[in-house]
Design a protein around this nucleic acid. Structure first.
Lengths: 207, 207
DNA sequence: AGAAAATGGGAGCTATCGCTCACATTTTAC
DNA sequence: GTAAAATGTGAGCGATAGCTCCCATTTTCT
């Protein structure tokens, strides 16, 4: 029996070397995505940007898509942290206040790294290894559904799955489109107006 | 002074030949996008599929992106026809009925050619010639804003631009996500439930 | 009919892409 | 100290992409 030839990302090791290499690769990938777009993000270009040889790149990532997927994962983790924090706050608040808090968090999330978010949303084809990296939303549905369960008394009797779908999809679309299309310099007044409108929309729907 | 070398899509000519060639190219592009995805849609592949030489392809389209843009334009025209028809109907109906009509039309639009729609939405990078092919939505905003103007008496006093943004973005996101993610075989019962929920959402918001 | 314009054809150029492999260097284990 | 394992290097291979150019065929015009 032959040995396994060479599998995916090697685990830990002399931490300082290989971990730094991996970090440099992910960071370089994100930088190129933001500055030059998805098309320019070839493996050779990424390796050069990271100051790492192309051979080393392939030690840790089997393809360009794996690299981009790693960037997406990291970005999603950051977004989810914001969402989770807002949900924790909202649990202790009345429905309308909580909704406002969640919507503000959605905007905050979209403003975390809007340029990266835009590239990932507009230029990154959901293909190959990237097909299922929409896991972000499905997790959000679940969390929000849990929130609604704790609020049963305040919402009309509805299919909670359906309601979660409607609310999450709506909030995501409104904040996403506003932040990306209304310019990243969306003024504070604009943000407030958007939060108010979105709050009215979902609260009116849930009650 | 030299002559202009050779510009973009030639206009009319011996209609039967060149017009057929152009049609074959667009049709072939759409077919490949649907069947094999954006990545496989190389100019050579498209020309082969269309039964046209690569030289002829470049007589009419300067790049692969121009071809895809043509497919998008055609698709958007089809979608807009559905939207316009629904809006015309809605003008003569009370707010809630009209909203229901518009939402049903949005679903209908997404079901026109869901596979193509999905490829364009998920795999087609908005880059180069494709950056501004989001013209579809901006036109819809305008049309819907016009609809709201005629309904001033029935909606609370609001910024109509903002309201149009909220409604169009919301309806688009809900129908898009539902059709694409809840499987293309979204049962009739599911469609009805979705229309009801979305109608409640936007009507509650507008009143 | 004959010339010119329009259209179609496709071999093949250049560039770049993803990726491998043979080897060098560094770290770890004993 | 020394052998083995881990990590890093980069020239370069094969494939394919977009696209040009030159020539053949068809249509139009007079």
């Amino acid at each position: 029996m032959a040995r396994k030839p060479l599998t995916r990302p090697r685990k830990t090791a002399s931490q300082d070397r290989s971990r730094a290499t991996v970090d440099a690769l992910i960071e370089a990938t994100a930088r190129i995505l933001v500055r030059e777009g998805f098309d320019q993000a070839s493996t050779n270009r990424i390796a050069r940007e990271a100051g790492v040889s192309i051979g080393s790149l392939y030690q840790y990532y089997p393809s360009k898509e794996a690299l981009v997927a790693a960037v997406i994962d990291r970005h999603n983790r950051d977004l989810m942290a914001i969402v989770r924090r807002a949900l924790a706050d909202a649990e202790a608040q009345p429905l309308e206040t909580g909704a406002r808090r969640l919507i503000a968090a959605a905007i905050e999330a979209h403003r975390l790294d809007p340029k990266l978010h835009r590239v990932l949303a507009e230029q990154t084809p959901r293909t190959g290894a990237l097909v299922n990296v929409e896991a972000f939303n499905s997790e959000t549905y679940g969390l929000f559904r849990g929130y609604l369960e704790g609020r049963r008394a305040e919402v009309r009797a509805v299919d909670l799955d359906l309601a979660a779908f409607v609310c999450v999809t709506t909030i995501e679309a409104l904040t996403h489109t506003a932040v990306l299309h209304r310019g990243e310099g969306l003024a504070e007044a604009g943000v407030e107006a958007l939060v108010e409108e979105a709050t009215r929309l979902v609260v009116g729907y849930l009650r």
